[in-house]
Design a protein around this nucleic acid. Structure first.
Lengths: 136, 136
DNA sequence: CTGCATCCATCGGGATACTG
DNA sequence: CAGTATCCCGATGGATGCAG
């Protein structure tokens, strides 16, 4: 958090391009950002509702991720001053655009899912953790 | 690395969608993956060349990231058995497709760059690290 | 030239308990 | 209900030295 260290003036060539991509990636890089964004993209969602919908997330991480998304302007937090506190989170148009941009990536993942796991299997087959000095 | 723990059967609703996105994100989630991919997408690049082009990367991280990308089938490693070793890395078509899919994200980042930094500034302004018992 | 091994600092993130 | 505070661990990544 609060990490703004990446110097985008990396300079030598395609550093700028790489950096711009990372700008976007960094907003969704967390383990839970996407899940939360999706859950909140259909309308206002309450804290507890998110806790159930995202499934697997801890209260702590939910809060942290929520704060980051809010800070980046991807989520809007609305507090109802009622007796049992009620807080609703809503994805901003910017967040929905982000999600739209992500579909290309999703499709890529679907298209190459097999190729990738294949490549991994092949790699692992040809690159066993060969310890020359140890062979049973 | 070698982390394949994400259970995509998250179940309850949009968990599947979120998971597929993460599949793609996880290949480029590293700090250097994108930079290397871009540098290698225009043609075969040597190890040292990459070390210069990526700029800021350490020899260690270059090697590690290279191995991961190779394992995922995004990079092909070609070793020339010459006296001074010469190894070239080339992005696979799959990797170039990945890069293409990332342009949508890039555009999103460009479009909302100002909005985001603005949101951050506003948030930080309204949420100072207020520690009641400590001031100075 | 290419790359692995080691040491070390930092960070994300899980578990749990406490509070307005 | 909606958080906040602590503790704690594994992963990430930087620096450096050694080796084929």
């Amino acid at each position: 958090m609060t990490s703004q260290d990446d110097r985008c003036g990396s300079g030598p060539a395609d550093g700028a391009r790489a950096c711009t991509v990372r700008e976007a990636l960094d907003r969704v890089g967390g383990k839970w950002s996407i899940g939360i964004l999706i859950a909140a993209s259909t309308g206002p969602v309450r804290f507890t509702e998110l806790e159930r919908r995202v499934e697997g997330i801890s209260r702590r991480m939910l809060t942290l991720t929520l704060r980051n998304l809010e800070r980046d302007g991807l989520l809007v937090r609305h507090v109802h001053a009622t007796v049992p506190p009620k807080v609703e989170y809503t994805a901003t148009p910017m967040a929905r655009e982000l999600y739209e941009s992500l579909v290309a990536l999703t499709r890529w993942a679907e298209r190459h899912r097999d190729a990738i796991s294949g490549a991994r299997a092949a790699y692992d087959r040809e690159h066993p953790v060969a310890k020359p000095t140890q062979s049973v």
